[in-house]
Design a protein around this nucleic acid. Structure first.
Length: 114
DNA sequence: CCCGTGACGGGGG
DNA sequence: CCCCCCGCCACGG
């Protein structure tokens, strides 16, 4: 299972695996995913993985925001408003790029999964 | 191989 | 509260 052919793609797949578990109507952060995967300081790489997630399907990248609930990745969606649209379509209120009630709907894989 | 860049986050001033 | 710098790591030029 650990051939040298499996390198960073492993980490990317793990990121996608966690992202797929984010419940509908909830959000998590790049750092929280990185922390859950054992490398808290690799939050940027999680962002990189999200950037590449458009190649995959059904990866709810819109449910991943930054540590304070800001939609920092919205520019990478097709429409500048798509990320917000997707979130609001599942009941997540967004105002001025900020997820409202962020601490309430924040889903931390470190707590909820294990 | 070095360097700039980035969907991050924490710490310091 | 704001701004800046640093550590992290993958990638492209």
């Amino acid at each position: 299972m650990m051939n040298d052919s499996s390198k960073n793609s492993d980490f990317f797949d793990k990121v996608y695996d966690v992202a797929l578990k984010i419940p509908y109507g909830r959000v998590t952060t790049y750092g929280a995913i990185a922390n859950y995967l054992g490398s808290k300081k690799s939050a940027r790489v999680v962002g990189w993985a999200m950037n590449a997630s458009h190649l995959k399907e059904d990866i709810p990248a819109h449910r991943v925001v930054n540590r304070i609930g800001l939609l920092t990745g919205k520019k990478h969606f097709f429409g500048i408003n798509l990320m917000k649209q997707l979130l609001e379509s599942e009941g997540v209120k967004v105002e001025n790029d900020q997820v409202l009630n962020f601490k309430i709907i924040f889903w931390d894989p470190f707590d909820e999964l294990q």
